[in-house]
Every structure is written in C-alpha cells, then in structure tokens.
Amino acid sequence: MSAHSENSSLSAKLHQATEVKSAKCYQCGKCSAGCPLSTEMEYPPSVIMRMLQTEDLKNDRKILKSQTIWVCVSCEMCLSRCPMEIDIPKVMDFMRQKSIAEGLSNPKSKNIIRFHKAFLDSIKYTGRLHEISLVADYKMRSMHLTQDVMMVPKMLSRGKLPILPEIIKDKKKVSGFFKKSEHTNF
C-alpha cells in the first residue's frame, strides 16, 4: 500500500485521514440527487467520488481546485440518504483543508474562504464570535465594502449588533488552541 507516501492518490490520503473509502461508492447518484447545492457545483458529490476513484492526479487536482468543495454547506443530506453510508461531508472537510494546505483553493470561492478565515480570526482574539468585527473584517478581505450596508442600520435598530465584543476570561487558552492547531494533526 502506498497510503503513506507523498505521491499517493488523494483517495488513499482521504482513506488514511478519515477512513472513508471512495471505492465503496457505486455511483448511484443519490447524493447528487438530493444535494441542494449541486447546481452550484461544477462537480456534484457523486462526480467527486468518481474522480477520487480514478486515482488520477489530474482529477485529484481538479477536486482540490473546484468550487464544489467550498459551496458545500455540510447539510449532510447526502450522508443521510447514501445507501452505502459514505460520509461525504467528511470528504468535503478533508478536501477543503487539503486544498488550502496545497494552495489550490478556487479563486471564485475566495470569498467563502475569506469569510471562514475572518470567522476563525474573530474567535481567536476574543473566544467568541463578534459579528460586527467579523463582517468588517470580511469586507476588508473581500473588498465588498458596500455589501449588506443596507442591513446594518436595521440590525442596529433591532439590537441585533452589539458594538462591543464579548470577551471570555480565558481567551489566552482559546487562542492557544490556534497555535497548537498549527503543529497538530489528527
């Protein structure tokens, strides 16, 4: 088995990291049929599974460069209906992290990634999510400065946007997790 070598296929790496075996998929298409986002994906979930099965490096790259993995919102409809109980949400999580690690993330999906990053950064410093800071940070990253500005006064007037963040007492510990996560892998 070449599962441990750097040259091994994405499918083998997936199996090693998550125990999900792409060979279990028999291409019935139930995941793609129920996926609410399949129309937004260039490769619906069943096609991703097929590409993994080919163990072709070209296909592996296509997956990591795809929008599919970022458009997936982990709604888990695929897993709940898969006759083979293949954990596709887990596959998508793995692919996203792999895609970032290899610097292959899809340019068209950069806003989705920016948002996730802004979200995590927000937690990093305060321990909790502060929505104004998150959105402001996201706007700076995405340069979508005017997006949703119409919502802000409405949200403020309804008390939905506290100006000051809540900061937890042990914020050092939480930011410590971020540091540890950089050199831990499981």
Partner: peptide, 25 residues
C-alpha cells in the same frame, strides 16, 4: 441513469426529484 432523492405531492401531482448521472449529475 441515476437516483431519486425525494418524491412529494403538489397540486395533485407527484414531484419526483432525481439526478441524471450520465449528464454529470
């Protein structure tokens, strides 16, 4: 060639939502 994800009733019809896997899902 593909599966059905859901069947539901609307206005006296059965709406069958599925996928054609030969057309890239």
């Amino acid at each position: 060639r593909g599966r059905v994800s859901q069947v539901y009733e609307k206005n006296g019809k059965l709406i069958v939502r599925g996928v054609d896997t030969l057309l890239m899902g």
